[in-house]
Protein backbone atom coordinates (compact mmCIF):
# COMPACT_ATOMS: atom_id res chain seq x y z
CA UNK A 1 0.00 0.00 0.00
CA UNK A 2 1.62 3.21 -1.13
CA UNK A 3 -0.62 5.85 0.42
CA UNK A 4 -1.17 4.39 3.85
CA UNK A 5 -0.53 7.68 5.77
CA UNK A 6 -3.20 9.46 3.76
CA UNK A 7 -5.64 6.64 4.40
CA UNK A 8 -5.07 6.95 8.12
CA UNK A 9 -5.43 10.74 8.13
CA UNK A 10 -8.65 10.57 6.12
CA UNK A 11 -10.01 7.81 8.33
CA UNK A 12 -9.36 9.84 11.47
CA UNK A 13 -10.97 12.84 9.86
CA UNK A 14 -14.05 10.84 8.87
CA UNK A 15 -14.28 9.33 12.35
CA UNK A 16 -14.23 12.81 13.83
CA UNK A 17 -16.99 13.96 11.51
CA UNK A 18 -19.14 10.89 12.12
CA UNK A 19 -18.70 11.39 15.85
CA UNK A 20 -19.90 15.02 15.55
CA UNK A 21 -22.79 13.94 13.30
CA UNK A 22 -23.90 11.44 15.92
CA UNK A 23 -23.77 14.10 18.59
CA UNK A 24 -25.78 16.54 16.50
CA UNK A 25 -28.32 13.80 15.74
CA UNK A 26 -28.71 13.09 19.46
CA UNK A 27 -29.19 16.82 20.13
CA UNK A 28 -32.01 16.75 17.58
CA UNK A 29 -30.33 19.37 15.40
CA UNK A 30 -30.29 16.90 12.49
CA UNK A 31 -33.26 15.14 10.95
CA UNK A 32 -33.01 11.36 10.57
CA UNK A 33 -32.88 11.66 6.79
CA UNK A 34 -30.11 14.26 6.97
CA UNK A 35 -28.17 12.15 9.43
CA UNK A 36 -28.35 9.09 7.20
CA UNK A 37 -27.43 11.08 4.06
CA UNK A 38 -24.34 12.55 5.68
CA UNK A 39 -23.36 9.22 7.24
CA UNK A 40 -23.60 7.43 3.90
CA UNK A 41 -21.59 10.19 2.21
CA UNK A 42 -18.72 9.97 4.69
CA UNK A 43 -18.75 6.16 4.75
CA UNK A 44 -18.45 6.33 0.97
CA UNK A 45 -15.37 8.49 1.40
CA UNK A 46 -13.91 5.79 3.64
CA UNK A 47 -14.68 3.07 1.10
CA UNK A 48 -13.11 5.10 -1.70
CA UNK A 49 -9.91 5.62 0.24
CA UNK A 50 -9.53 2.05 1.50
CA UNK A 51 -10.77 0.25 -1.61
CA UNK A 52 -9.92 2.56 -4.52
CA UNK A 53 -10.71 -0.19 -7.02
CA UNK A 54 -14.44 0.14 -6.23
CA UNK A 55 -14.46 3.57 -7.89
CA UNK A 56 -12.92 2.12 -11.04
CA UNK A 57 -15.69 -0.44 -11.12
CA UNK A 58 -18.34 2.28 -10.72
CA UNK A 59 -16.59 4.48 -13.27
CA UNK A 60 -16.73 1.76 -15.88
CA UNK A 61 -20.40 1.37 -15.12
CA UNK A 62 -20.91 5.05 -15.97
CA UNK A 63 -18.61 4.85 -18.98
CA UNK A 64 -15.84 6.93 -17.45
CA UNK A 65 -12.22 5.78 -17.73
CA UNK A 66 -10.85 6.16 -14.23
CA UNK A 67 -12.35 5.96 -10.75
CA UNK A 68 -10.68 9.20 -9.70
CA UNK A 69 -12.34 11.02 -12.58
CA UNK A 70 -15.76 9.81 -11.46
CA UNK A 71 -15.06 11.03 -7.93
CA UNK A 72 -14.07 14.48 -9.25
CA UNK A 73 -17.15 14.70 -11.48
CA UNK A 74 -19.47 13.73 -8.65
CA UNK A 75 -17.79 16.10 -6.21
CA UNK A 76 -18.16 18.98 -8.69
CA UNK A 77 -21.83 18.18 -9.21
CA UNK A 78 -22.47 18.05 -5.48
CA UNK A 79 -20.64 21.37 -4.96
CA UNK A 80 -22.64 23.08 -7.71
CA UNK A 81 -25.85 21.81 -6.19
CA UNK A 82 -24.89 22.99 -2.72
CA UNK A 83 -23.88 26.45 -3.99
CA UNK A 84 -27.22 26.72 -5.76
CA UNK A 85 -29.08 25.73 -2.62
CA UNK A 86 -27.08 28.26 -0.62
CA UNK A 87 -27.89 30.97 -3.14
CA UNK A 88 -31.60 30.28 -2.84
CA UNK A 89 -31.41 30.18 0.92
CA UNK A 90 -29.59 33.53 1.10
CA UNK A 91 -32.10 35.02 -1.33
CA UNK A 92 -34.95 33.83 0.85
CA UNK A 93 -33.35 35.23 3.98
CA UNK A 94 -32.80 38.56 2.23
CA UNK A 95 -36.49 38.67 1.41
CA UNK A 96 -37.38 37.90 5.00
CA UNK A 97 -35.14 40.73 6.20
CA UNK A 98 -36.94 43.05 3.78
CA UNK A 99 -40.29 41.97 5.21
CA UNK A 100 -39.16 42.83 8.73
CA UNK A 101 -37.73 46.20 7.65
CA UNK A 102 -40.96 46.98 5.79
CA UNK A 103 -43.11 45.99 8.74
CA UNK A 104 -41.08 48.28 11.02
CA UNK A 105 -41.26 51.16 8.52
CA UNK A 106 -45.05 50.95 8.31
CA UNK A 107 -45.38 50.56 12.08
CA UNK A 108 -43.15 53.61 12.72
CA UNK A 109 -45.39 55.63 10.44
CA UNK A 110 -48.44 54.57 12.44
CA UNK A 111 -46.79 55.85 15.62
CA UNK A 112 -45.97 59.21 14.03
CA UNK A 113 -49.53 59.39 12.81
CA UNK A 114 -50.92 58.80 16.29
CA UNK A 115 -48.64 61.42 17.83
CA UNK A 116 -49.51 64.16 15.40
Amino acid sequence: MTYLPLQIIVSLFVMLIVFRLKKKFKDNSLKTSEFIAWLVLWLMVLVVFWLPQTTSYLALLFGIGRGVDLAVYLATLVIFYLVFRLYLKIDKQQKEITKIIRHLALKDEDKNHDQS
Partner: peptide, 25 residues
Protein backbone atom coordinates in the same frame (compact mmCIF):
# COMPACT_ATOMS: atom_id res chain seq x y z
CA UNK B 1 -43.66 64.62 2.80
CA UNK B 2 -44.80 61.47 4.55
CA UNK B 3 -41.59 59.61 5.32
CA UNK B 4 -41.37 55.83 5.67
CA UNK B 5 -38.04 54.71 7.03
CA UNK B 6 -36.25 51.49 6.15
CA UNK B 7 -33.75 50.91 8.95
CA UNK B 8 -31.49 49.04 6.55
CA UNK B 9 -30.89 49.59 2.85
CA UNK B 10 -33.03 47.02 1.02
CA UNK B 11 -33.00 48.27 -2.56
CA UNK B 12 -35.26 50.30 -4.80
CA UNK B 13 -37.78 47.51 -5.40
CA UNK B 14 -38.19 46.94 -1.67
CA UNK B 15 -38.67 50.67 -1.07
CA UNK B 16 -41.31 50.95 -3.80
CA UNK B 17 -43.24 48.00 -2.38
CA UNK B 18 -43.24 49.59 1.07
CA UNK B 19 -44.60 52.76 -0.49
CA UNK B 20 -47.19 50.81 -2.49
CA UNK B 21 -48.45 48.96 0.59
CA UNK B 22 -48.68 52.24 2.49
CA UNK B 23 -50.63 53.88 -0.34
CA UNK B 24 -52.94 50.86 -0.56
CA UNK B 25 -53.61 51.05 3.15
Amino acid sequence: AIVLKHRLNRGQGAALETGDLYALR
